[in-house]
């Protein structure tokens, strides 16, 4: 019952604050699952999602595919305040959840804010912990907390091999085209997330050679849709990026930053945000600021999570399932 009303209230908010210039003819639906993580299954290029805590209720056909991967986000290594003074153990719990999946995921996407203060020791801890995950490849994009004080130099030294510009790149896996974008650099006063002209030009070129039937998964830290611009939860030039993706049959956009799971389907594009492995943030507009939500200890892990994505060729579905750590 509580879950139902949470979805409803977010529907209202999202309708109020959409300024992302996307075609409205398509089916639009917004869901927010407070208290769960996300499990994603890609089936033939369309993304379906299930609450990971309700994974047992979902048939195995829906959750199996040719490709499955996990998204984690906002680990904030180094954060030590309420409601989570131990972000290491909650990242470990996320990794345990990944390692308990019936089939090891092909890889892990980390959608940024790996660290809290961009300190070398914080990066070291995250990398060290992720070595114990069943999936060995981790693909990162930076969050604003990963590029503090040095314009992202340290992030690039660690994770930027083979990337362009501030760290954007693309790769293919099982016929799915993955694109990691950076929208946390050169932020303008009063503005939102920012991709910048150089990256947009690169994106247009990167997509040009693909056939429209290629499933595309875009991942970036700050949401590429207007979740709540008043709190900076959106990206100023995302509409241009999304316009390049309109010709594709199936596009999935995975983001972090807002420390809660939300979904929206709009035309050919499905948007998801993942929970944080570190601390929850309030629902849009429900608090004076987007600062960390202080919750009782016993509730904390139900508000943190991992996202698992599974792709099945030919079924035209991409399923995302959120999993809470509790």
């Amino acid at each position: 019952m509580a879950e139902k009303s949470a979805r409803k209230s977010n529907d209202v908010l999202l309708h109020d604050h959409n300024h992302d210039g996307i075609d409205r003819r398509g089916f639009l639906k917004c869901m927010a699952w407070a208290g769960t993580g996300a499990f994603c299954v890609i089936q033939g290029g369309v993304l379906n999602s299930y609450s990971l805590s309700k994974l047992a209720e979902v048939g195995s056909m829906e959750t199996r595919g040719e490709l499955s991967f996990v998204q984690i986000s906002d680990s904030h290594m180094g954060f030590d305040k309420a409601a989570n003074p131990d972000v290491v153990s909650t990242l470990k719990a996320a990794i345990d959840k990944i390692n308990a999946l019936p089939q090891p995921p092909a890889f892990i996407l980390h959608t940024g804010d790996i660290t809290h203060l961009s300190k070398p020791a914080e990066f070291d801890t995250a990398e060290q912990l992720l070595k114990s995950a069943s999936a060995k490849d981790v693909f990162y994009v930076p969050g604003e907390h990963d590029v503090l004080n040095d314009e992202g130099k340290q992030y690039l030294d660690r994770f930027g091999k083979g990337s362009k510009g501030a760290g954007w790149y693309s790769f293919e896996n099982k016929g799915v085209h993955f694109i990691g974008l950076v929208n946390v650099m050169n932020l303008k006063a009063g503005g939102l997330g920012n991709l910048g002209q150089e990256q947009l030009e690169w994106l247009e070129k990167d997509l040009k050679h693909l056939s429209k039937s290629t499933p595309v998964v875009v991942f970036a830290h700050i949401p590429l849709w207007s979740v709540y611009p008043e709190w900076g939860w959106g990206t100023d030039d995302s509409a241009q990026a999304l316009s390049y993706l309109k010709r594709f049959g199936s596009v999935t956009v995975l983001n972090g930053h807002i420390h809660q799971t939300m979904q929206k389907v709009e035309g050919n594009i499905t948007f998801h945000t993942a929970a944080s492995t570190a601390f929850p943030q309030p629902k849009p507009g429900s608090a004076p600021s987007p600062g960390p939500m202080k919750v009782p200890e016993e509730q904390l892990r139900s508000l943190l999570g991992v996202t698992d994505v599974n792709y099945v060729r030919g079924h035209h579905a991409l399923a995302v399932t959120d999993s809470s750590l509790g």
């Binding site: 907390h145 932020l187 303008k188 006063a189 009063g190 939102l192 709190w231 900076g232």
Partner: peptide
């Protein structure tokens, strides 16, 4: 970080607009 302090002395007259480049809102 929490509790940290930054000081700057403004010696020249003018209008200084500023922001947090991490949270540009």
């Amino acid at each position: 970080d929490t509790g940290d302090d930054f000081a700057y002395t403004f010696s020249q007259p003018g209008t200084y607009d500023y922001f947090c480049s991490i949270h540009p809102k």
